[in-house]
């Protein structure tokens, strides 16, 4: 069991419990974080799960692959270095305590 904190657009923080092996998108959807809708179910097709990984956690993240990067570049006007698609981040022990900033949905 891992603790994951979502910082919502209004700066409210919600800390939820996640399962190892689940994606960050699934964790958000299961806990009704409404800005992360994950419409395609996590197959990297829609970019409705865009989020920002807190800078302190950068080193613990696998880099985005080409498909994810292209989707992000196309979808997000103000893409930042820490922009990610939550469906492509699979949680492991290393991620206990992860902090994720959730923007307003672009869709």
């Amino acid at each position: 069991m891992l603790n994951i904190t979502f910082v919502l657009p209004d700066k409210n923080e919600i800390t939820v419990v996640a399962n190892e092996g689940d994606s960050l998108m699934q964790t958000a959807v299961d806990n009704d974080i409404e800005q992360i809708s994950g419409d395609c179910g996590g197959c990297c097709s829609c970019a409705t799960c865009h989020c920002f990984i807190d800078d302190k956690w950068k080193a613990k993240m696998m880099a985005a692959d080409d498909m994810e990067t292209e989707l992000l570049e196309g979808a997000i006007d103000n893409m930042q270095e820490n922009s990610r698609l939550a469906c492509q981040i699979f949680l492991n022990k290393e991620h206990d305590g992860l902090v994720v900033h959730v923007p307003e949905s672009s869709w």
């Binding site: 498909m67 292209e70 989707l71 570049e73 196309g74 979808a75």
Partner: peptide, 11 residues
């Protein structure tokens, strides 16, 4: 296999 074009167009 051109996700960026899909995303830009969808916008």
């Amino acid at each position: 296999n051109q996700p960026k074009s899909f995303m830009i167009s969808r916008k």
